[in-house]
Design a binder for these strands. Structure first.
Lengths: 338, 338
DNA sequence: TTCAATAATGTATACGTATTCATTCACGAA
DNA sequence: TTCGTGAATGAATACGTATACATTATTGAA
């Protein structure tokens, strides 16, 4: 006898149809596929054979409904073109799969309507939410708390004590950058930040200025520009136009730093690091390319991810875990631009 | 009377609870939120108010089950660190959201076990699958066909006539690259391809060689290396070691091209484009940076995405649409490296 | 006012699975 | 043989929604 390869009219066969073919109950089919219960080997084989014949695949949606657990983890991010940032998303997605979940991706054009996005996220009854480089409103935090959905914020300070937040210590990084430049004998400082990652940039600036203040330096040119190579160049142009004697620039992102370097080199004929030092942030691939050899900071992304997923796994298992802000030091990567 | 803010023990309230509070039937609540049926304004408000009070959000999982439509679209990709590629994923995710669906992300470490991934994908009863830069086995194509899940392959030739495939015309691009270099008076050709995107590279190589053959040039150094800057450098090093008179190199990716350029400049002291021409592919941001000004090819990604989503939307609406391979010309972006 | 027609809402069921509880089966000891 | 015991399976139900169908409320025309 020939059986149809799947359920009626192009539908995927369901466990009931498999059960019928294997002459068992639907419950038995379910047990075979969830792999928990004891099943006699002979029936197990019969069921698998029937399933194979019908092209059966368990319906994850239906399973989610009964189990009250979707196995989905939301990645919420703002729409940004930034190689370093994209690489991070990829890593997070990978980790999610490694713990047996599926990443459901939510992109928000801007940080403003993150609440709207969150509302969507919660409709999918995701098991957890990972927010990248964006702030979570306290309202949403409370909402998630209420419905027991763990939230993790990655790379953005959050005031909320109840949210697990993993972040590079930006203030410290800024301090270290200034200190490094100061030790190299620089005296005339500037800072180029990114309006795209404003909060992060501000923190780095704070540390930068703190350090300069400690050294007795009050003066520091500051520019916040969109996160692009061209804007890095423009920023450097403006800085050098205003104060041609600037000889130490910390950029809150490598792309800005590379633009800044090129402007100094190609338009102002400055030698790096002889005439001017530039330090970046993120250690993107291009930072190590021959024309740049940019000294920069590297975030300990992998360690941060370890902590994040340790937390998530424990939380999802109902274990007691501590929330709050976890800061990680960044590491300077010395090359030849400073 | 004070009502609890949500369902029992941290569960999100369901439509039944909202119905009870609003003194209507569950069906009415459903109708209010699906927004299709006519509802008296006064009851609509009462329901919304009750929902608000309970923190109700429709359960997308349950809805998927009854509607037999998950509103999920799978993005299947292989795990690759490549800025151009990551940007593409982002764009695809955005488009998916724009047509009111959610991107569910599946990453495969290698192309080999794509079938396994597909099995997962189908469990989630996704409405469609978008495969990026990876081949779909004919077995899986048949499987999807059978269960009515549209599959779109992006940026990879597929033999299967029944799959909607959108791809840049790589053979033509290779031909154009060779022709461009030939017109510039170059005579000694080389090609650096990527083993990471082997199929794509091979096609570009084919067009490249076809053109050279037409010009009566038989000789062409060919190297296939992993897709990194360092490997681009190494490849150039080997090529110049073997044949120091090579003066035209087409790289099947910008990252390789930038590495190749730097090796020629910094290690061999060659002037670009005076001594040697380099052409890349993808037109990544870095191609336009001052030290490079790389002449390269740009894929018409946005147009390709337009076509892809035109197809998907129509297909999901049950309209008749033609499958098969759709080729798109790439556009040369002239700068100063050739 | 009365009836028809339509709008608004309620009732009942299906979607595909997991799971509790009940039942049957197999097998060895007495 | 009979009984007990644990293993294997079946029957029934819940999960939260959408919707076909049934019912009630409302409106307008005569």
């Amino acid at each position: 006898m020939i059986y149809p390869k799947s359920g009626a009219n192009g539908r995927i066969a369901n466990s009931k149809e498999v059960a019928a073919l294997a002459k068992v109950s639907q419950a038995t089919v379910s047990r075979v596929f969830s792999g928990q219960a004891k099943i006699k080997e002979s029936t197990r084989l019969r069921v698998l054979q029937a399933a194979e014949a019908l092209g059966y695949r368990p319906n994850a949606i239906a399973r989610s409904l009964t189990m009250n657990r979707s196995n989905l983890i939301a990645i919420v991010s703002i729409d940004i073109v930034n190689p370093h940032y994209n690489a991070m998303i990829n890593k997070v997605a990978n980790r999610i799969q490694e713990i047996g979940k599926e990443p459901l991706f939510f992109v928000s054009p801007e940080e403003k309507n993150l609440d709207e996005i969150f509302s969507q996220v919660l409709q999918y009854r995701v098991d957890a939410v990972i927010v990248l480089s964006a702030a979570v409103s306290s309202h949403m935090a409370a909402e998630c708390e209420k419905v027991q959905v763990p939230v993790v914020v990655f790379n953005k300070y959050t005031i909320n004590k109840n949210i697990f937040t993993v972040c590079t210590d930006n203030v410290q990084s800024g301090w270290l950058a200034a200190n490094y430049l100061y030790e190299k004998g620089r005296k005339n400082f500037a800072f180029i930040g990114s309006s795209t990652f404003l909060g992060t940039s501000r923190d780095r600036l704070r540390g930068y200025k703190d350090c300069l203040y400690e050294k007795g330096i009050e003066d520091c040119s500051v520019l916040m520009v969109p996160y692009t190579y061209e804007d890095g160049r423009k920023a450097m142009r403006e800085i050098l136009k205003e104060k041609p004697d600037i000889n130490a620039v910390f950029c809150a992102g490598d792309i800005l730093a590379l633009g800044a370097m090129d402007e100094a080199k190609y338009e102002y004929g400055l030698k790096i690091p002889k005439d001017i030092s530039v330090i970046g942030f993120d250690n993107i691939d291009a930072a190590s390319w021959a024309p740049y050899m940019l000294t920069t900071f590297e975030q300990q992304i992998d360690i941060m991810l370890d902590k994040t997923f340790d937390y998530l796994v424990k939380k999802l298992n109902g274990e007691e875990v501590s929330e709050g802000l976890k800061l990680f030091a960044s590491k300077i990567v010395e090359r030849n631009s400073a």
